[in-house]
């Protein structure tokens, strides 16, 4: 028997209203631990919705999402939320850092909902930020450069040692040079954390960074290679 995949999707389907065409339709998809994959598709094609479904923040109409061996939608309420906090990290285009909280606190916020002992939170968050090149750990997000904010967001995503990191258009607001730097950071951080990375983007220039890539259209009918 092989290692449990970080992500497995079977027959996933989601439509906003019954009878309407599906916004998300994924026949089958598997991602091993440490594997990195780019998912492409134009605006409004359901990329972010797919990530929300994988994270258990939306309910599919059909199909299964299995993360780190756990059928996500078989869990309910707080159990699913705690599982998400422990097993899935998320990175957003706008970073979505908590305003009013320092860089360190933003990373510790992710640890709040994890099984990591409280006494280790500060040290663990501090080390992670340092490793990712954030020196001003007590600065608020608005006091940091965009690049530094991105590093904080990445640190928060991998803080709990997740099996899977979901990145939603992580470079959409950056110029090409910073976009490249950001992707270097994300991919390296995921690799170091042993987490699988599923990155969705409409930017075709990202393709060369990923060995595995697929469009949503391809996923809707076939198992990607």
């Amino acid at each position: 028997m092989g290692e449990t995949p970080a992500l497995r999707i079977d027959g996933l389907r989601f439509a906003y209203r019954a009878g309407e065409p599906a916004v998300v339709e994924v026949g089958s998809l598997a991602l091993a631990r440490g594997e990195q994959m780019l998912l492409t598709g134009g605006s409004g094609r359901g990329k972010s919705t797919l990530l929300m479904l994988i994270a258990g923040l939306m309910e599919p109409d059909a199909g299964h999402v299995v993360v780190d061996g756990q059928v996500v939608h078989a869990l309910h309420g707080a159990k699913r939320d705690l599982f998400r906090g422990r097993a899935i990290g998320m990175i957003f285009q706008t970073f979505n850092l908590l305003h009013g909280f320092s860089a360190l606190e933003n990373v510790m916020a992710a640890l709040m909902f994890s099984p990591v002992p409280k006494r280790e939170h500060r040290e663990r968050a501090g080390e992670l930020l340092k490793r990712l090149g954030v020196e001003r750990v007590h600065a608020k997000p608005e006091e940091l450069s965009v690049g530094q904010q991105q590093r904080v967001a990445v640190a928060r995503a991998v803080a709990c040692g997740p099996a899977l990191v979901l990145a939603d258009e992580p470079t959409a607001s950056l110029d090409p040079e910073n976009a490249a730097n950001a992707m270097d950071l994300i991919q390296t951080a995921c690799r170091d954390a042993g987490a699988a990375l599923l990155c969705v983007s409409h930017d075709p220039s990202m393709a060369e960074r990923f060995e595995r890539r697929a469009s949503l259209d391809e996923l809707s009918s076939a198992v990607p290679a």
Partner: peptide
């Protein structure tokens, strides 16, 4: 709302 959404993503349950 955004802060709440972020906390939910990080693992906070609705009751919390």
């Amino acid at each position: 709302r955004r802060q709440i959404a972020v906390l939910r993503v990080l693992g906070a349950s609705r009751p919390r």
